[in-house]
Design a protein around this nucleic acid. Structure first.
Lengths: 341, 341
DNA sequence: TTAGAAATGAGGTACGCATCTCAAAAACAT
DNA sequence: ATGTTTTTGAGATGCGTACCTCATTTCTAA
């Protein structure tokens, strides 16, 4: 026999279809004893609800919004691309996604965008913004209105968000640290650069990086973090100065964006051949640098997984279904010249 | 307006539902001009087939068999586990999978198993066995009977298989080589061990490994491959001897299975602290060794992806649908202590 | 011009489930 | 026993698509 249907369950349990339906969909008005009979029949026949048929009949439309930083970030670009790609696939079945762009550095505009979301026209939101008290408030309001809220890529741990979808940045930093230590032969100086340590991701990566460098490679010295604040001139100057002044410099760890500037500064400093450079995220820039042996390794997360996981989690939250953490754990990927995807 | 349906397409194109259906499902008996009208309407309205409804109506049951080596291999175990897990998920919607175990080293039994598959009760097969002329013949027969055939994990390039699902083992070997060179500081001797170089995977990995070691790290010396032939005593003896005789030994690359034996030999030889060990596949043994810093890195492929990709490809083949190579490319993952999944 | 072939239309049924209504039965309280 | 409430049954309808039949129209070739 092929897969049992609700009809088979009804027959097996000796009740009507309506009762089976009431039990399966947790509708009221069924005695406990009857519900148990139905449940027993379900177990006995190994009934599994046909998701296709259920979705079809239910006519459910999940309406989600993705709040993403706008502006020329390659990470966000690939994320949007992944979102659009997923949109056409099975996983995005019966979901509609609206992308809301917010200016990266304008805290007020971010909050305004979050406020402008209409909870009545939405079932859930995925948010990728820096955490501020105002953002926390806005998220609280969204939750109060009954929306599902997940933090994407960058966690908002002190907010009311239901879930975080992204990598553990401390572990990502630790991975970078381990690779760095091994690549530089456990000694020498390591420069760490980022846009800004105010971002949680950078802070956590630095933390994990330092843990491993201090614990496993005590002979190596990690220099204080250079923050570029999106100012490429500034970045270039400082990097060149470090190259000049630090003959023992053995590695560079780039925790955030701005790899193009970093690389051009290193190139100009003529230091690329001897340095172990580790960066984050596979983008056109880092990809090319890997191929040219200018970057030794890139730590990355699979953006496609990120998006699909966010959608799955949002749906589960909307349906009050359990979330399979094992499936939703985003891997920290290590990409070298030879395993570029 | 919500998602357009076939009815909307019919109205928009000014044709009947039957014609729309004929076009959408590539049934014969439609003039090119009419088909173009329908296609235009599809494009204009952005029609996307409702997968739920289609699956429901189609009532298609894909019957697949997975031919896998049996016996105590941790790789096969995790693969089977992934298969069962996937089986309960959406991707395995409307597919039934039979697992056929074959003895790893008995070429005759393998062919017998392949012959025993009933093509009438099957739509496709995923095969993970070593390539022999008899296997090629058996696959040819399966193809003649109209089955979809994919090679799983280990390719059968000279057979009639439709597709290969797995990693590029040359690239995997190259990745291992790059890591090894960086870890050992570009000089020293490197031992390479495997079960048997008769397996295509081992050969290809060795090839890639040597390419990179020779090209990027000319000062390092790669020793000839040790084949254990599943004989752990033999493996242990040889490894111990190498450790004794080769004071410049800096790294060990394990291309296949038998990591447990290798590790215990290395442990006994007291050489683990100074060696860079690179192995393949995340298993309980390699996982523990990573955590203990006995293995520096593991090259692996995500078995879950492998299984899901195989299922998707088999389905596409059955429906004569195109295969999205980009999606089906299995990544070569690098796993260190800090990014263990 | 006409027979024959090809293309198209109209409509039905089925898939498995969700959801609703209304009637009937059972359980309960008085 | 009666009336009231709760539980259950029977049935209908629809979701969007696949697939089938048969009648009708349009095209093609002689």
């Amino acid at each position: 026999m092929s897969r049992p249907t609700v009809h088979d369950i009804a027959k097996e349990a000796g009740v009507s279809l309506a009762t089976v339906d009431r039990v399966l969909n947790a509708r009221p008005g069924v005695r406990e004893k009857t519900a148990a009979k139905v449940q027993a029949a379900v177990d006995r026949l190994g009934y599994i609800r046909d998701a296709s048929a259920a979705n079809l009949a239910r006519q459910r439309q999940y309406k989600f919004a993705f709040v993403l930083p706008e502006g020329p970030s390659q990470f966000t670009d690939t994320l949007k691309a992944a979102l659009k790609e997923t949109y056409a696939s099975q996983i995005a079945d019966r979901v509609s996604v609206k992308i809301v762009g917010v200016p990266t550095h304008d805290a007020h505009a971010i909050v305004r965008s979050l406020r402008s979301l209409d909870p009545k026209r939405l079932d859930g939101v995925a948010i990728m913004v820096p955490e501020t008290p105002q953002v926390r408030d806005a998220i609280h309001r969204l939750k109060d209105e009954g929306l599902a809220v997940v933090a994407l890529a960058s966690d908002l741990p002190n907010s009311a968000r239901d879930h975080f979808v992204g990598i553990n940045n401390i572990a990502a930093g630790r991975t970078a640290g381990l690779l760095m230590g091994r690549f530089i032969g456990a000694s020498g100086e390591v420069l760490v650069v980022t846009n800004s340590l105010r971002s949680r991701a950078s802070l956590e990566r630095r933390l994990g990086f330092d843990e491993v460098m201090a614990g496993d490679f005590p002979k190596a010295a990690v220099l204080p973090t250079i923050e570029s604040y999106d100012d490429s001139r500034r970045m270039e100057e400082i990097v060149l100065e470090v190259i000049m002044r630090r003959p023992r410099l053995a590695g560079v760890y780039s925790m955030g964006f701005g790899n193009r500037t970093l690389l051009s500064a290193l190139r100009r400093g003529g230091a690329l051949d001897d340095l172990a450079v580790i960066a984050h995220e596979v983008t056109p820039v880092t990809r090319q640098a890997l191929q040219r042996d200018e970057i030794s390794a890139v730590i990355t997360q699979n953006v496609g997984h990120l998006v699909r996981s966010a959608l799955r989690v949002l749906r589960s939250l909307c349906d009050a279904m359990p979330i399979f953490d094992a499936q939703e754990r985003i891997r920290i990927e290590v990409v070298l010249r030879e395993n570029l995807p």
